Amino acid sequence: MKRIHRITCENPLEKIWSMFVYFESEPHVKDFLTQFYRVPFGEEASKYAFQNTQKFIYNIKQGKEYYSAAQSSNILVKPLLLYYGMVSFLKAVILTADPHYPAHSKVLQHGVTSRKLKKSDYTFSEDEVKVQKEGLFPLITQLFESQHMIGEKIKIKQLLSIIPELKESYEKTYHEVSLLPLHLSKHIDYTSPVTTFYLSESVLDHFHLTYEGFISFLNRYNTGKARFIHHPIETPQGIIRLSWDHPEKIHVFESPNGFENHLFIQDYKGNHFFQYQQSHSHIPELTAHFLIMYILGMLCRYETELWGEIVFSFTSEEMFIIHEFLNISQRKFPNMILDLLFSERFIFETR
């Protein structure tokens, strides 16, 4: 991401969809794709952009139509519409990196599998997906440099745990802490520009680390130029104070990629969280939305009776978090697609 845009508006979702209209203009899209293709393909960039302009536009338009239909649909079919909306948007994203997509029929597969016939004692959170070697999803992992996911089996509960807007719902449903909110100091000392933040001291016990050991642990997951350093001022019992130092950013609020570290994540309002449970295998949040929606789409397509029992039964323990996920994903996934396409982070704030 190149920079952050904070946009104040009455209705964030309405504003997001209005920004997608930019991608319905052939001149805009041709110039847009040419910029992506120029470095890797040189003089052929304009040719490839011309060839893919309409394909890109129709992927975007189709994605919007799926989401529009999902907005007014019953929950019995909503996940399927949202999933195919995601697929259409991601095909457009892939086109920005690969002008030859689809090169062959195998890349048109989903790229993930799950057990189609569910067990009689089925539990949504314990269901899992397996990432295939070929198909749409493996191409997405390449964009995020997350090819380590290929061949892995991933449980839905793990995917739910990394979505920051689901933090409260996750804890109410599973009685576990998944994410810790960061308390960031807004004070800036221009003589020594670092971001000071606070975490619960419980993280040290959770990872069996000392304060200094925890700082070393965090720095192993850095993805950019920033690093975490010791803060010299003592803190009250129960919390720890750390500093984030970046050679080019005065404060993390200026960083479109947040802390540039796999263990930290942001919600769509720009609030930061520490991933309390995900310490080893990084899963980009956008891929978590996709994989969860894939399972939900499979349920409502192939296991209609079971799906109805899950979302309408008074005895279902996970109905609440599924409803929450669908509402949040409808709002956040298009936002993340905009971020990817423009290579900028958009934070929409209400007046």
Rank of each mutant, 00 (worst) to 15 (best):
S281N: 15
G308C: 08
F333A: 01
E254F: 05
F50E: 15
S125I: 07
F137M: 12
K119V: 11
V77Q: 12
N257A: 07
I94K: 01
V177F: 07
L299I: 07
S68T: 09
I240L: 05
R301I: 03
H175R: 14
Y66T: 02
S329R: 00
Q330V: 03
P79R: 06
K15F: 06
E212V: 08
Q71R: 13
M1T: 11
S18A: 10
V87Y: 10
L291C: 12
F342A: 08
G135Y: 02
V203Y: 05
P27R: 08
L326E: 12
V107Y: 12
F312W: 07
Q51H: 06
V107C: 13
L13T: 14
P236F: 00
N335M: 12
N11L: 08
P236V: 05
K2P: 01
E324M: 05
D98A: 05
E128T: 10
L204N: 11
K91A: 09
Y48S: 04
S316P: 07
W17M: 15
T123Y: 14
E24G: 08
F124G: 08
G224P: 04
P284F: 02
Y83V: 06
K186I: 11
G258K: 01
Q278S: 10
Q147W: 01
K106A: 11
E44Q: 15
T315G: 10
Y22V: 01
K91F: 06
I57P: 02
Y66R: 04
Y101V: 01
E176T: 13
L242Q: 04
R38K: 15
S68L: 05
S18R: 13
P232Q: 04
L182I: 10
S25T: 06
I16Q: 12
R6W: 07
P164M: 00
F273Q: 08
L95P: 04
F228D: 05
I347Q: 02
K225A: 13
Y37W: 06
H280T: 14
I75K: 08
I57W: 02
I283P: 03
Y58W: 09
A288Q: 04
M1A: 13
I321N: 04
E171T: 14
A92N: 01
T96V: 02
H110S: 05
Q158V: 10
P79I: 00
F197W: 07
K249V: 00
H104C: 12
M336A: 09
E234W: 02
I188R: 11
K116N: 10
K64N: 08
E318W: 02
I229E: 13
